[in-house]
């Protein structure tokens, strides 16, 4: 499905004026989710709305999934947005956007996401050969098509192009500004309160770049090539990983312990006779490190042995 074929804008007003507007801002700890929500909250307040903005500190901020609820309206009760009732989800990182997508209103919620990928190390915990990544396999095009009113922009690249990747947040704010009823100059005035003085101009340009991008017809970044690469990586199935065989020549091993301690998977151990043995054969990824670092040539990994009778 080509997202570009869809209608370029799906305007939706808040039909129940008494209901607050819900914006869910998500990302990875350290990306600046809090800064984005603070800007939005301050803007809403200056526009005369009651605002509640709620976040969670603590463990969650350390590279984990981070989210912030911003609700504004004439009267706001709950500090949190009920699942499925977010009018807008702003994602500073792609997979986080995908994670929180279910909080979006089904009938016309707006999804704004940076296509930047922060691949968590745990996505590759399966370190066997040709293991697939566990990173969100959905492409921006697919997700944008799914939500109807979606914007997937490569804000980080845009920001880098402007001179500092850190202003990606402001690029996203620029995109966000096109779906909220506040004047651009009001946005910029509030943003200036939150950014260092010397970056005001940079942030202004970033905001305008994001805003410009969002009002153009595009819904997914033009750089489809990066997506193709991403597809290749994420979709790379576990091909038939070549079998390997680790053998230890007990007569040559002197029990120096180097292999045991250096094995990234901690597969090896010294047995009672102080000779290395493969204690966890399943965990061995055939990385060869033990073989290379064995001063006694006692370890050998056949990377593609002629395993007789192997399926």
């Amino acid at each position: 499905m080509n997202a570009l074929d869809k209608e370029s804008a799906s305007p939706h007003g808040n039909r129940d004026a008494a209901r607050p507007t819900n914006v869910l801002i998500v990302g990875v700890g350290g990306q600046g989710v809090l800064m984005v929500s603070k800007v939005l909250a301050a803007l809403c307040q200056s526009e005369g709305f009651e605002v509640k903005q709620s976040e969670v500190h603590g463990m969650a901020k350390r590279g984990g999934s981070v989210f912030s609820h911003v609700r504004f309206g004439e009267q706001v009760w709950s500090p949190t947005i009920p699942r499925g009732e977010a009018d807008i989800v702003v994602a500073l990182e792609w997979a986080e956007g995908v994670r929180w997508l279910d909080h979006l209103k089904r009938d016309g919620g707006t999804f704004i996401a940076d296509t930047q990928r922060i691949v968590p190390p745990i996505s590759f915990r399966n370190r066997t050969r040709n293991a697939a990544s566990a990173y969100a396999p959905e492409t921006p095009a697919e997700v944008v098509a799914l939500v109807g009113n979606g914007f997937a922009l490569d804000a980080t690249s845009m920001a880098t192009g402007l001179g500092d990747r850190r202003v990606a947040n402001t690029v996203l704010l620029g995109a966000l500004s096109t779906v909220l009823p506040f004047a651009a100059e009001h946005w910029l005035a509030v943003i200036e309160q939150f950014v260092p003085a010397k970056t005001k101009d940079l942030n202004r340009r970033a905001f305008l770049a994001g805003r410009d991008w969002a009002v153009s017809a595009e819904r997914v970044p033009a750089a489809a090539a990066t997506d193709a690469v991403a597809q290749k990586v994420t979709a790379r199935a576990i091909e038939t990983a070549p079998a390997h065989l680790l053998t230890i020549n007990e007569a040559w091993c002197k029990g120096c312990d180097i292999c045991v301690k250096m094995c990234p998977e901690r597969c090896l151990s010294l047995n009672a006779r102080m000779v290395a043995e493969l204690a966890r054969p399943d965990a061995c990824t055939a990385c060869h490190l033990c073989e290379w670092l064995c001063p006694d040539f006692a370890i050998r990994i056949e990377s593609a042995p002629a395993v007789k009778g192997a399926s």
Binding site: K254, G255, I258, W292, C294, D296, R300
Partner: peptide, 26 residues
């Protein structure tokens, strides 16, 4: 295969456990 380049009949070598010289030789 390092064994192709060694006088394997002389192994294990005389070097102490953990001696880096074996790794350098490899």
């Amino acid at each position: 295969d390092i064994r192709d380049y060694l006088r394997t009949e002389l192994l294990p070598h005389f070097m102490c456990p953990g001696c880096g010289h074996g790794i350098a030789l490899r």
